[in-house]
Design a protein around this nucleic acid. Structure first.
Lengths: 151, 151
DNA sequence: ATACGTGCAAAGTATTTGCAAACGG
DNA sequence: CCGTTTGCAAATACTTTGCACGTAT
């Protein structure tokens, strides 16, 4: 049920850097650091988490740059913003293969997990066709108590 | 496709006030005003929108009270928080009948509409059973360009 | 009378913006 | 070199909290 990322990870980072480069963007510093960090993740991170991890690795980045990079990556379709409703936005890489997951949030401990389901995707796709909108994407969040917090 | 609320609206407000009263809460001022305003809506509002509308009606409420009332209503299960990802939380009444909708957001003009779909609900329900979580609720947001903005 | 609710102002978070310095191409 | 990108600090946006006063019960 939980999606595991493996080999695709590093290639996402490479592809993203390459695409940005092709678009005329430069290749250094904060942007590369954020992209590489994101590429190593299995699930979504907050801007603050990204900032903290980069600092922990010794990179001297500003949180503003983290936000700026995320904003750009999001606009260009490389990362997806995820709002799980705790007042802070989360971000995760969009993998090219079309593989795609949603999120399961524990209301109690705040844990976030990913899940994927084909039937759900099909139902979403059907609905999308009937909206009259040109639907660019969708988000699904399931909220509840996780196994540990159910007791 | 779009859900229209009609007769249920006023009863939601009445029911909510009555339930709160039964729980020992008092009946006056800001709380009543917020509940009645929410009851008149077809879709979700932000705290600021609620505040502005109440002020426009001449009610002298503070935005803090609006947030406090929304927090309480949300905790008690009368309203649902909706995060459509624009940095501000939205709120809407939960109607008792179990009728239930999701949201369609125009990335361009910011418009928010409601939609409902039984097949989607069934797919969600199935997935929820397989998560291992005790799922309390779910949110679905479709993002895209609305009819007006597609051009 | 006596809590509970309220409005206001102040404090907290999360995110964005202005700007001069740093840096890649 | 030149224009992009960066870090920092200040600004903004949203939400919560502290507190004295108002008001339903």
């Amino acid at each position: 049920m939980v999606v595991h990322a493996s080999t695709k990870i590093s290639s996402w980072a490479e592809m993203t850097i390459a695409s940005l480069h092709a678009k005329g963007h430069r290749n250094s510093g904060a942007r590369r650091a954020v992209v590489e960090l994101l590429g190593r993740q299995d699930c979504c991170l907050t801007a603050q988490e990204i900032f903290d991890q980069l600092r922990a690795e010794g990179r001297r980045v500003g949180i503003a740059s983290v936000y700026r990079v995320l904003e750009q990556l999001s606009k260009d379709g490389f990362v997806q913003r995820i709002d799980i409703g705790a007042g802070t936005t989360r971000f995760e890489p969009i993998h090219a293969g079309g593989e795609h997951h949603h999120h399961l949030v524990c209301d109690d401990c705040g844990k976030v997990e990913a899940f994927a389901d084909d039937q759900l995707e099909r139902a979403l796709h059907k609905v999308e066709g009937r909206t009259g909108y040109s639907v660019a994407g969708h988000d699904v969040v399931l909220r509840g108590a996780c196994r540990d917090c159910t007791s």
